[in-house]
Design a protein around this nucleic acid. Structure first.
Lengths: 207, 207
DNA sequence: ACAGCCATGTAACTTGTTACATGATTTT
DNA sequence: AAAATCATGTAACAAGTTACATGGCTGT
């Protein structure tokens, strides 16, 4: 959703053609996640389909310009005015992986964590290096690039911290005798309406 | 990719039928991101298509069991043995949004940040409440649920910290006279091979 | 001439997501 | 009988990703 919204927001500044949109996007995001050109045209088609942009003129050079519509402008305002919600919506791949891994028999969780930690740390170091290489921001796109690097750094730091925290949590759990493996639920759930349980577990609650 | 891999990993413990896989997944992830049932069957079809699982027996109750294949087992091992890389791969929606917003004219960045900050803080508080409501973990799935909540908390904290950091970075930039808006690149890039530039900007580098 | 970028576009694909149809079973 | 859950499955779609075809332009 972010690419779509980003392109729309850029188009809010004035009509653009596809290739131009890519360079504008790359420039504004510090070329951290370069965009495949083909994707621009797909996205433009879909934006047009949804009535958020429309084909404008084609100039002598053959550039096909797209212009934002009123509905598109409204969408940009809504986007900028409402927060991004991640928890609750976006599934966190790493969290899921570790959570699943904990419930798996024959998996060395400590090892999984260490491998991840090493990788995250390496990423963090690369990011720090990249940040140090950045000169004082002179323009808004320099600033944007800096923001993105910072974001990745903050996230990577949190990741490492969480991994450390998880490691000790797990060590404590093992010491407390909580098993590291969870077998498949043996009792097949009965069909039909289940007996009203005292335990307030929301759904699928057999254990 | 995480759902697919998670289901495969669960199937590594033994054959399961679709509905069962959902409850297993939900149980192991603390029901944080409940899974739509239909998705299970889609995913199973695709896993079967890729040769990672195969249809096993169907029991008297009509449960259609799927079993993991050797290729599937290898895939699980590979998954658990290799780290998840986020930065570089996954695009961060919030970071992109803010980076784009900084380069947009007529956008009150401080306001965007504040709206986001309030929302993130609310999420953080809800998560903290949820964590406090968790009793001492007794089983591996309790532990997994705790890990996930912790992960979300660490991330949300990092998000708030980054927002604060960005706010002051931007304030400093404004004080230093770096404009808050970035117009569309006026000079249309010439077609054909560009002049060999001294500046080592990787791509699309006009400004 | 050729290399290499600028530029548009299409097709095929991935995972994820939801709405819906269908029916069995069991409790109220 | 009604309601709710268990259970399987299909169809359509969204957003993102990539490979490819095509051609124009320009500097070497």
């Amino acid at each position: 959703m972010s690419i779509r919204q980003s392109l729309l927001a850029i188009l809010d500044q004035g009509p653009c053609y596809g290739y131009q949109l890519r360079s504008e996007f790359d420039r504004r995001t510090g070329s951290t996640w370069p965009l495949n050109v083909g994707q621009i045209y797909n996205t433009l088609d879909r934006l047009e389909r949804d009535g958020l942009v429309e084909k404008a003129n084609t100039d002598d050079a053959g550039h096909v310009y797209y212009a934002i519509t009123d509905a598109g402008r409204a969408d940009v305002v809504r986007w900028l005015g409402s927060p991004v919600v991640r928890a609750g919506n976006t599934r966190d791949e790493l969290a899921i992986k570790l959570a699943i891994a904990v419930t798996l028999p024959g998996v060395d969780i400590a090892d999984v964590i260490q491998v991840q930690r090493a990788a995250s740390l390496r990423v963090l170091q690369d990011l720090t290096k990249a940040k140090n290489a950045v000169t004082q921001p002179e323009s808004a796109d320099d600033l944007a690039g800096l923001l993105i690097i910072d974001s990745l750094i903050f996230q990577a730091e949190a990741e490492v911290r969480w991994l450390d925290h998880s490691e000790s949590t797990l060590a404590r759990a093992v010491a407390a005798g909580v098993a590291g493996a969870l077998p498949l639920s043996t009792e097949t759930p009965k069909r039909g309406r289940p007996v009203k349980s005292v335990e307030p577990r929301p759904a699928g609650g057999e254990r």
